[in-house]
């Protein structure tokens, strides 16, 4: 589904990703761990098409298409979703209105029928239950005045609603209380299917207790320096990053 090959990315004139390669197949869950500043969010931003991230070499294929030539909204319609590490507050843009507009824009781009407000609300109700998000948040501005945890839950709620094919979760677990962590994990697990893939960026093993990854990668110095099964996360938790091969490795 996703094939990243030798990706080099500059941000603000500095090389952040230095030859990153990664393949994610449909149905898989990949966890990416790695020290602060390693380039994990940069990877997510490049995959979703944020401005200011200059690809100087390498390629990214998504379902056989060159992902890097697509506008952010085209990537979304193709099924790429990122739950942001720091979801932005957008005062005055109503959450429900925005989500319906976004969902319908995606459906339209894919040549699917748009949902009317009844159909949309039905879908909203279903997804809200899983994440235990208070109804009231839907009537506010996007993330406006949401607590840190509410913002993260709202990201997963959006994911559940938009049903992407590839979801990148960037530290969705940080800032969540124990119950919220479970709800968010349930939200993700409910979405797991042979057609979908997840890239879960996290610093903590505990999220991976709830969302069992198929593969765990260590991203350090702009590359994947180690990959393994779930046991790699346990090892990192115990030993830190000192034990993994340095930049030259992988």
């Amino acid at each position: 589904m996703l094939k990243i090959d030798n990706l080099h990315v500059h941000v603000a004139g500095k090389e952040i990703l230095k030859g990153l390669s990664l393949q994610v197949n449909a149905g898989e869950v990949h966890a990416i761990m790695g020290p602060n500043g390693a380039g994990k969010s940069t990877l997510g931003n490049v995959l979703t098409g944020r401005e200011g991230y200059e690809v100087t070499a390498g390629s990214v294929q998504f379902d056989g298409r060159d992902l890097l030539t697509l506008a952010p909204e085209e990537r979304a319609a193709a099924g790429v979703f990122m739950a942001f590490q720091y979801p932005v507050e957008i005062p005055g843009v109503n959450n429900t209105y925005f989500l319906r507009a976004a969902l319908n824009a995606q459906r339209k781009a894919r040549g699917e029928a748009e949902l009317d407000s009844m159909q949309f609300l039905k879908r909203v109700r279903e997804k809200l239950k899983v994440l235990q998000l208070p109804d009231a948040l839907l009537h506010r501005g996007v993330n406006e005045g949401f607590s840190g945890g509410e913002k993260k839950r709202n990201e997963i709620f959006q994911m559940a609603l938009l049903e992407p094919r590839l979801a990148i979760l960037d530290e969705t677990d940080s800032g969540l209380d124990i119950d919220a962590l479970r709800q968010v994990s349930e939200g993700v697990n409910a979405q797991r299917s042979p057609q979908r893939a997840f890239i879960v960026i996290t610093h903590y093993q505990r999220l991976l207790d709830h969302i069992r990854p198929d593969v765990v990668h260590v991203l350090a110095g702009g590359r994947i320096v180690a990959s393994g099964g779930p046991e790699l996360a346990l090892k990192l938790e115990a030993e830190g990053y000192a034990g993994v091969p340095a930049e030259s490795g992988a």
Binding site: P72, A76, A77, M82, A102
Partner: peptide, 18 residues
Amino acid sequence: DSAMLFYLRARGLPEAAA
């Protein structure tokens, strides 16, 4: 605000609509 604009587009809204 470019961060807001990106957020909306990343969810699928075309640029003009965002």
